[in-house]
């Protein structure tokens, strides 16, 4: 009897713990290279992609209810387009202004489960100090701590978050210089892939 009660208590505790939102932190340090934030800009001359692994943030995810909140922060100064001079321009005051606005942020305000690993996420996107509400699709995959996660280099429960969306530069106070008008698209495509470990 006692054994049965203990087992039930354990199952109940496990269920409750699963039902609670859990905090996952985006991996940094030696696993940071696995994260990838990209920004793609289309110009007449070239379609270039800036990229950085410097993504931080926290996800509070309820595995049972399939909902949660979270924030993702991308370090602007580390975005690399493959050409040093262009990096300088992009970080400069006319474009992303990394000195005054060192991060690009996304803070969720509403997360709705769509199906499987797919979610519809609404949140506050901040770039160059301007915040706008955007809605995008995201994929959130969870893997429980196991031999497989360890083999992949993750020490604990791990979440993979992926999302992609487009923003208009002009919405964020970025004015394309007159000499580049018509040659540089006002829209840029942003994507984020980040791994987060459970506490």
């Amino acid at each position: 009897m006692n054994r049965t009660l203990s087992t039930l208590a354990l199952v109940l505790a496990a269920s409750l713990s699963m039902a609670q939102p859990r905090t996952f932190k985006v991996v940094t340090d030696k696993l940071e290279y696995r994260n990838l934030a990209t920004v793609e800009s289309v110009t007449d001359f070239e379609t270039f992609t800036g990229r950085t692994p410097k993504v931080t943030g926290t996800l509070n995810f309820d595995l049972a209810k399939k909902t949660g909140t979270g924030n993702i922060v991308v370090d602007v100064a580390s975005i690399d387009t493959g050409i040093a001079l262009r990096n300088d321009h992009m970080r400069g005051g006319q474009w992303l202004d990394a000195e005054k606005h060192p991060t690009i942020k996304f803070q969720t305000t509403r997360v709705a489960h769509v199906s499987g690993d797919k979610y519809r996420v609404t949140g506050q996107f901040t770039m160059r100090g301007v915040t706008k509400t955007i809605t995008t699709d995201a994929t959130v995959k969870f893997r429980k701590n196991s031999a497989e996660t360890k083999a992949a280099g993750f020490d604990g429960d791990v979440i993979l978050l992926q999302t992609a969306f487009k923003v208009r530069l002009s919405d964020y106070g970025i004015k394309i210089p007159s000499q580049a008008a018509g040659k540089v698209s006002n829209d840029v495509a942003i994507s984020v892939k980040a791994y987060a470990l459970g506490n």
Binding site: R34, K141, R143, E148, T149, A151, A152, G153, F154, V158, L160, Y195
Partner: peptide, 8 residues
């Protein structure tokens, strides 16, 4: 990143 991709 085969290890991480394979995991998911």
């Amino acid at each position: 990143d085969s290890a991480a991709s394979g995991l998911f």
